[in-house]
Amino acid sequence: MRSFLYAIAIGLVGAALLHIVIILSLPSFTGRDAYTRVQAFGEANRFFPLASEGNTLAPINDDPAMKTAVCTFSVENGPIRLFADGDVPFWSLAVYDEASNEVFSMNDRTSVSGALDTLIATPIQLIGIRKAVPAELEQSILVEMRGEEGYAVLRTFVPTQSRQEAATAFLADASCEAFTADQ
């Protein structure tokens, strides 16, 4: 009887672990993980704003007090520079790898001069850049990314309707481009 109860307990623990593994791996099997969904928004190296509830053609932004834009990128052929500047009360940036693990995050309070100016590169690319930092990167925040692909999420706070236009312009003017030393 004792071995029978032991076998049942082991079976239940094994079944629970199997269910947890299946549930956690489901997004990668369905193709509906965050990275795949962001890739479907449009071309790489360009911020795409998330829509409010009224526009069903674009992905939905579920927080009315925030405006959000996303950009997919690859650092395989060179670093990516993220830049945005504008008169918004608050902005934040989060950079994720292709497995949706957060690589880096910051906001306007932790940036240099309140503007978003970030360079994302592989460790090898950053070594070359740090040897001779180009003048245009002197105020930039350098971010090391171990993988080659990822996405960035840029959000800005819209406390009142009167700030809506400034927030929209901030996201529309944000850039997510391949960096070349002559920029």
Rank of each mutant, 00 (worst) to 15 (best):
V38H: 06
N77A: 06
V143P: 14
I127K: 15
S111E: 07
N107L: 00
F73L: 04
D33M: 08
D85G: 06
V75P: 00
E136D: 13
A169N: 02
I120T: 03
D173I: 10
L24E: 12
F47G: 00
T180I: 12
S25F: 04
N61V: 04
A115G: 09
G11P: 05
A7D: 07
F83Y: 14
V38F: 05
F73S: 05
A178Q: 08
D63W: 12
N55A: 13
V103N: 10
F104G: 02
Q39N: 12
A99G: 04
A51G: 10
A166K: 09
A15F: 13
D62Q: 15
T56W: 13
E165K: 14
S52L: 06
S52P: 11
L126P: 01
T36L: 06
Q161Y: 13
L24A: 12
L18Q: 05
A16W: 12
T56Q: 10
A84T: 02
V153K: 07
A15M: 11
L126M: 11
D108A: 14
V13N: 05
S3Q: 13
F179L: 15
C71D: 08
H19Q: 13
C176L: 01
P79I: 10
E136F: 01
P27C: 12
E177C: 01
A9C: 03
F29S: 02
I124F: 07
T72M: 07
Q164R: 10
S52T: 14
D63P: 07
R146F: 13
E148R: 06
F29R: 06
S52R: 15
F29V: 03
A99M: 00
S175A: 10
V143A: 15
A65E: 09
G128A: 09
V38C: 03
F47R: 06
Y151S: 02
I10K: 02
G128Q: 13
T156V: 03
Y151E: 05
V75G: 05
S162E: 15
P159M: 05
T110E: 14
P89E: 09
E53H: 01
M66K: 15
M145E: 09
Y6I: 12
V75C: 02
D182Y: 04
L82H: 03
A34K: 04
A169T: 07
A132K: 02
V95Q: 10
V133E: 13
F29W: 05
E144C: 01
R109Y: 03
L26V: 10
S52N: 13
M66Y: 15
G31F: 02
F47P: 08
A94V: 07
A169V: 04
P59K: 12
D33H: 04
P64A: 15
N77V: 05
F29T: 08
N55G: 05
G42A: 11
A34I: 13
A174Q: 11
I120L: 02
P159H: 03
F48Y: 08
V95M: 09
A172Q: 14
E149A: 09
A9P: 06
N61W: 06
A135Q: 11
I141K: 15
G54K: 13
A172I: 01
A34V: 15
N45D: 01
A99N: 04
D108M: 05
V38M: 11
S100W: 07
L57S: 13
S162V: 14
A167V: 01
A174G: 02
C176A: 04
S3F: 03
T30W: 06
R37G: 06
V153Q: 08
S113G: 09
V143M: 15
L154M: 11
E136C: 06
R2W: 04
S105Q: 00
I23G: 14
I10S: 03
